[in-house]
């Protein structure tokens, strides 16, 4: 492949949050949890020390998926639900780049559910941050795969009657190499989780509980119900799954850090196509 050497411009001073703040004004409602995630990501990127031009933030569609334009990194705001395949192609084509994928619960678990499974399974060295507000915010308040069965909405009066699923347990079953949960309003601990997720090799999945102040104002109460420092990271997939499924829905921290090998890199170099053409010759 073409060798893209990312110029490691050694910054004179350490990077700061400001280096990752773009001039684009977020469209989010004031008080939206996603502001916390954006700030935590900017902090984490500064901490990680890769300059903005070596980072790509990829997303799908939704309120949360608007995030890429709000950093100074390269960005990709694609179609609904397909952020993970975009990030996969990007990272496989350019392993030298830091690729961070972000989005919402609808984007990642509904329309993009299949890609979520296969991204965990494929284990490309990526970080995936889902801002789970248990609702489709952008389309103004419909239930998602993580919404409580009895949550009343215009789209499902009285609730869907369908039990939400556990994205963390699914990620573990599908093979993710790092599984953690954070809370959007705990910016500093969230930034630390992001740093850890990015540093961990393979596919790192970070679920962030991010309140939608507009369509689920009751989620602001999560501030009180979040269980901080209640999780012990393990390399045992079964134990991590048990911890996730055995209550602790509001527990934040790292549940699982595995040691699966990442998806192999492509063979380097670009051969001579004429050698291959010679295989067509007959005489």
């Amino acid at each position: 492949m073409t060798v893209h050497e990312a110029p490691h411009a050694c910054p004179q001073q350490a990077l700061t949050l400001k280096d990752f703040k773009s001039s684009v004004e977020p469209i989010w409602c004031s008080g939206c949890g996603d502001f916390g995630v954006l700030q935590a990501l900017q902090r984490a990127l500064a901490e990680l020390g890769r300059p903005p031009h070596e980072v790509v933030v990829v997303s799908g569609i939704g309120c949360s998926s608007r995030l890429p334009a709000y950093t100074t990194a390269y960005g990709f705001h694609g179609v609904h639900g397909r952020a993970l395949p975009v990030a996969t192609g990007l990272k496989l084509a350019r392993p030298d780049l830091e690729v961070i994928t972000v989005g919402g619960d609808g984007d990642g678990y509904s329309i993009g559910g299949n890609h979520f499974l296969h991204a965990c399974r494929r284990n490309v060295n990526l970080t995936y941050i889902v801002m789970d507000n248990r609702v489709y915010g952008m389309t103004k308040g419909q239930p998602s795969p993580t919404t409580e069965a009895d949550w009343d909405s215009d789209a499902a009066p009285g609730g869907t009657g369908v039990k939400p699923f556990s994205p963390l347990a699914i990620a573990l079953a599908a093979g993710a190499n790092f599984v953690a949960r954070g809370f959007a309003l705990d910016v500093k601990p969230l930034a630390n989780l992001i740093v850890e997720a990015v540093r961990h090799p393979g596919f790192s999945f970070l679920e962030v509980l991010s309140p939608c102040i507009t369509f689920r104002p009751e989620e602001m109460e999560w501030k009180k119900s979040i269980e901080r420092n209640a999780v012990q990271a393990t390399a045992d997939r079964a134990a991590a799954t048990a911890a996730i499924l055995g209550g602790g829905e509001m527990a934040t921290g790292v549940f699982f850090k595995g040691d699966r090998g990442s998806y192999a890199e492509a063979p380097k170099g670009h051969g001579d196509a004429e050698k291959i053409a010679a295989k067509f010759l007959v005489a």
Binding site: V79, V86, G89, L90, L92, A93
Partner: peptide
């Protein structure tokens, strides 16, 4: 979509 990512890259 993978092609989109690689192309962008």
């Amino acid at each position: 979509n993978m092609c989109c990512g690689a192309s962008f890259a």
